[in-house]
Every structure is written in structure tokens, then in C-alpha cells.
Design a binder for these strands. Structure first.
Lengths: 345, 345
DNA sequence: GAACGGATGGGTAACGTTGTTCAAACTCTG
DNA sequence: CAGAGTTTGAACAACGTTACCCATCCGTTC
């Protein structure tokens, strides 16, 4: 029953079994030039018979490992699951295996993970909403093909995939203004670092909100609570907004979880959604779609973003010197039951 | 700006810089026997000065890769995030890096992922609620240290960590019976394979339910809808239960998402929770705790399970021949607002 | 003072794969 | 049918690390 594992089959075993050189087997494995159809068949048969699988560790020492690493900041954000689905779907036909590192919150953890992936000679990296400094991202991208998702600002060393957060914020403001709202508040994720202030999606959403408000002649109504993109951030931000002299009739939360926190604070204050206050989220995560919640939210199409990231990464692995591409997708608004016309009053 | 990445620092560079042999450097890296304190310091200094990091690929060819792989069936189940937190927390002081493979639903995908991890010479595997055949699990465990989480049934080749699902189900039934319920129905995840029927948590929960009902003299009231552990499964299962002649006054859903589906179906039927029907979930995921939902659920303490799994794995990596351990944790019931006494009628 | 033994450090051969080089065996062309 | 090119497959040297073994060196013991 508990017999020790038999020695692993290596390329040498295959070569001997097929009566060819190891070089030949290697060529067949990689679809490389210089192997006749007859030899291909012979080798493939030997591989199948012996159940051979190449060792990625050994491969990594010379060539590729056929592994791409994905770094994401938060396992609990369901939007990232969509992204991941997009990545794996795009890669499913290929030989690449996706591996992710869990829990990379903060610059230090990110650095550790990126180094770990490089040390394991991964062929490419997808970095999702990284907070690391631009210098570090460039350093990483210089040593391994990299695609950065969800961070604005062009780069000459890595490709990017983003959602147009300014448009997303505009969609929300337009929708609420069309319903008749004027006092539309926003809960943002606080940002102090100047580079991130320009590049992170949360900052772009806040900018989009301000611009759209001005465009609708609501510049005087701009009202922002600066907390964080968490459930708690939404709760606290909303309490803050409700305590201000002119209470908002609509709250644009920067993320779905934030909107849920907001709804909790609103309920606690004895107010109703959307009767007294309309609420919108961002991300259109599974949470937003869930019946009893039914949150109006901005849909980013994570699958599409993920698929794009994977495509760009494979392209770059193929040619490291090609010019960088920057894909920007357009979000759409999904209207559900948390937004309505403001109370008559 | 876009200068090509400089050649990577290797152990040879460190050895030259510290004026010692590569063997010596290797010994220091691994805390191996045969290096004097003086040499340790000299080498560590050289490592720091050059910023050297060992190549995991090269290491894997001879020794360890300091990588453990985690396989989980569903990124969207938040309970697994807790598990993962437990694993990473336990491993955070060590040199091990955790990598996970996404989306392993079904036997084929599981097989692919497990092979991929073995091919990458990972030092150990944590398999979370795998559905693969026992024979395959044994094969995997024979070639790499393995801990299986959330699957009952002892093994002599791998360690296991489980939650006592029978107790969990009993807690639910007792709670509902104490409230005065007699018609307590259960929604289970359908299982046909005989081995899995004995080993999978869902089957154990159904068994626990039946036993507990009998123990309370409610054998005649046992009522099961057999669907799946999904939102849809909960919805359809509940519609089925509501259509039966004797409508249940309480529904024990096998998982939190199932309970949400159930609540949707109940609302659609014009009934209220817990006024007309009480509902309980299982897992105590973040979803259950969320205010507006506030679902009574069984808490498995995923962090603790994860920490145990990681500890067992490290122990087994240290000694592959030690006898297998099987840790079984006891769940607890978290009572919230979806359970109450049955309607008077 | 010779023989012994533990502590320390180095030499060397793997580990399993791939890129390069090279020779042999073919296939054309004039 | 000779010469030139074009396939085809093999030999071999990396890649960066670790396991194993051996050579010192020094202090102890008889």
C-alpha cells in the first residue's frame, strides 16, 4: 500500500525507450525545428507509454517554466475572481499554468511575492492593482515579462490593462443626476502618495466624480468622505456624510463592499434605500447582483480584462522587445434597486 | 531607462566575493552543519552586499524549492480565504512560499493541477476538499508530502484536517428543535460516488442531520432536497421543499450560499424569514455575517484549520515516514437573525 | 611524540533539461 | 554524376544548486 514512490521518469528514459537522443525528445516536446514527422510520432508514443512529464524545475534552469504568476491584493474581493477566470480561460489552450500568490497587501508583501516569483523563474507576471512604487515595478518588469492590471499611467517596460474609471464615475453621476439628484456624495479610498494619486483607480474615480459633477453644474455640491475601500470604510464614511449639515440624497461608493457598509450605516440611521438615499457601488461583483441586495453598480467586465492581460503577457513573452501596449476598457452601468429619484421634500 | 536586466547574481558570485567555496555558501544558506560562526557572518555579509537570492529552479533540481502548493476548488467561496489565511499565517515565519492554483473544479482539473505542482517540484501540497478518487490522492501523496483538508476518511499516506460535520449538523438540528421546530428540512449536495459518499463533508452533514433528527424523535420529519452546494441549488431545493405536502418550518442548508438561494425562493413565495420559515447555513462565511443578511450558520474556524494543515505539512516535509495524523476540529453554531420559533398556527 | 578524532572547508559529480555545434545522410541541380 | 545545399539527429556543454566525500588542521590521549 505505502510503497515508496518509484523514481520519476526523465527525458533520458523516454529517449532510451524510443531509441533516439534526448535532444530529439526535447525538440519534440518544444515543437522545435529539426525533427521529422516520423520521429515526432515515435517520441510521442514513448512519452505516452511511459507517462512522462517534463520537470519544470530543470526546464527553468535553461529555458521556460511554462508558469505565469498572478499577484492579487485581496482574495476576498470577488471582482478579482472574475479577472482570474479571464486569465485562466485565455490561457487554457496553452501550456501555461497559472499560479497565484495569496494576500499581498502592502508594499513589503508585494516585494516579497514578486521576488519569490522571479526566483522561481516564472515566464511572466500579472500584477493586479499593485501599490508598489513605479521604480520597483519597472525593475521587476525589466527582469521578467510583466502586465499590470488596474493601474493607470503608461510605461515603457510593462503592458497595462485598465478600466476607464473616469468614465465609470461619470456614468454613476449622470445616472443619479438624471434621476433628479443634486447632492451626490462620494466615498473614496484615501491616497496620499503623489504617484499613486495619479495612477490608482480609486483616485481616477474620485477625479471622474469631480469632473462629472462640474459638467452637470453641480460643482457646489461636491462632497467627499475620504476613508478606505472596505466595508468599514463605507460604514464610517457614510456616518460622516450623514452628520454633515446638508445631507446627501445619493452616495456613490467607490467599491461594492463600500456600498454595503454605507447601506448598513443608512439603515442604522433609520433611513431607507433608495427611499431616502440612493446608493451605488463599483465593480458589479457577485455581491451586487445578489437578489436581496440588488445594488446599482459599475460593471468592469473582469473576465475581459483578465483575458486581455493574459493575451498581452503571452505576446510579450514571445517578443520581449515589442513596444508596450496599454489596453483601456470601457465600463458600463448596471442599474438595480438601490437607486431611485430623490425624496420629494 | 529600459536598460536590459543585468545578469542575475549567483552563488558563485557570492562565493568569489566572500572568498570561500560555493559549498560553504550553500551550507550557510541552508543552515547546514559544517560552517563556523565566522564563516557564516562573512558569507551573510557578502549575500547582503550583492543582494543575492537563490534560484528556486536550480534548488529544485537537487534539494527543496521552499514552495508549498495549495489547491482549492472555488475562489468565490470566502471560507477558503480564511483557510488560506491560516496557512499563510502559520508559514509566515518560515522560508516557505505559498502558491495556489485557481479553479480546480472536477477531477480532470484537479489532476492537471496536482501534476503541475509535482512537476514544479513543490515541497508539499495542501489539497482542499478534493473530489479526486482516493487512489489518485494516494498516488500524489506518495510522490510529495500532502495534507488533505475537508475530506473525512483516514489514510496512511496523507495527513488530514477536517471539521466534524456530524457535530455541525447536530448543532443546527438541536438549535432548531430547541426553538420548537419539528419539520426541519435539509438541502444537501447530491453525491453518488460511494467513496465520496462516505468521505465528503456534504455527505457527513446529511448523515449528521438524519442522526440528530432521530435522536430528537423526529425521524418521521426527515425531509431532504438533493441539489448542489450553490446559490441555484438552494433556490431550486427550496422550491421543491415548499411544494411538498407538509411544508417545513425550518430549512438547514448545507452551505451559506445555499441558504441565500433558499431565502430568495422563500421571499418569492411570499413568505418571511424567520417569521414563516427559519433558515441556517454552514461555514459562517463573511456573507453570513453581513448585517442585512445576518444568517445563523455553523462556524468552522477556517484559520485554525489552515494553520493545522500547514503545521502538519511542515512536519511531514521534515519526516516523510512519520505516521499520519488526522486532526478533527469541532465547529460551533453562530446564532443570528434567520432563526426563530416556528409560527404559532 | 605518534596516533587518533572531531571540526571545518573545499572538490566534484550529479540533478533534468535545452541551445549550439557538427557530422552524416539525403535531395537537388547543372 | 559531381558538387552544393538542406534535412536530420546526436554529442556536448551549459544552467545554479546541493549531496557526498575527502583533505586539512588542531587539540587530545596513550
Amino acid at each position: 500500500m505505502t510503497k515508496p514512490a518509484p523514481r520519476r521518469i526523465t527525458i533520458v528514459d523516454v529517449a532510451r525507450h524510443a531509441q533516439v537522443s534526448t535532444t530529439a525528445v526535447s525538440k519534440v516536446l518544444r515543437n522545435a525545428y529539426g525533427a521529422s514527422p516520423a520521429m515526432r510520432i515515435k517520441v510521442q508514443q514513448a512519452i505516452a507509454e511511459l507517462g512522462y512529464r517534463p520537470s519544470a524545475a530543470a526546464r527553468g534552469l535553461r529555458g521556460q517554466t511554462y508558469t505565469v504568476g498572478v499577484m492579487l491584493p485581496d482574495m476576498r474581493n470577488l471582482f478579482f475572481a472574475d479577472l482570474l477566470d479571464g486569465i485562466t480561460a485565455q490561457l487554457s489552450g496553452t501550456d501555461y499554468q497559472v499560479l497565484l500568490a495569496p494576500g499581498c497587501n502592502g508594499e513589503k508583501a508585494e516585494a516579497r511575492v514578486m521576488e519569490a516569483m522571479i526566483d522561481r523563474s516564472m515566464d511572466g507576471l500579472v500584477l493586479i492593482a499593485p501599490v508598489s512604487s513605479k521604480a520597483r515595478l519597472n525593475t521587476v518588469a525589466r527582469s521578467v515579462p510583466t502586465v499590470v492590471v488596474g493601474r493607470h499611467g503608461p510605461s515603457t517596460t510593462y503592458d497595462t490593462v485598465t478600466d476607464d474609471d473616469v468614465i465609470g464615475a461619470t456614468l454613476v453621476v449622470e445616472h443619479l443626476a438624471d434621476l433628479g439628484h443634486r447632492r451626490i456624495a462620494h466615498i473614496e479610498h484615501q491616497e496620499t502618495d503623489p504617484v499613486r494619486l495619479a495612477e490608482m483607480p480609486n483616485a481616477q474615480r474620485a477625479n471622474g466624480y469631480r469632473e462629472a459633477m462640474r459638467a452637470r453644474g453641480l460643482a457646489d455640491e461636491i462632497d467627499i468622505a475620504s476613508t478606505s475601500y472596505t466595508h468599514e470604510g463605507g460604514y464610517l464614511g457614510t456616518k460622516e456624510l450623514l452628520a454633515r449639515p446638508a445631507r446627501p440624497t445619493a452616495i456613490f461608493a467607490g467599491a461594492d463592499v463600500v456600498a454595503l457598509g454605507a447601506m448598513e450605516a443608512i439603515a442604522e440611521a433609520g433611513l431607507s434605500v433608495p427611499g431616502d438615499i440612493s446608493v451605488t457601488g463599483y465593480d458589479n461583483s457577485a455581491l451586487a447582483a445578489f437578489g436581496p441586495i440588488s445594488l446599482t453598480s459599475v460593471d468592469q467586465d473582469g473576465r475581459q480584462m483578465g483575458a486581455n492581460a493574459a493575451r498581452l503577457l503571452v505576446d510579450r513573452i514571445g517578443d520581449r522587445d515589442r513596444r508596450t501596449s496599454h489596453v483601456k476598457l470601457t465600463p458600463s452601468l448596471v442599474i438595480r434597486r438601490t437607486t431611485a429619484a430623490p425624496p420629494a421634500s
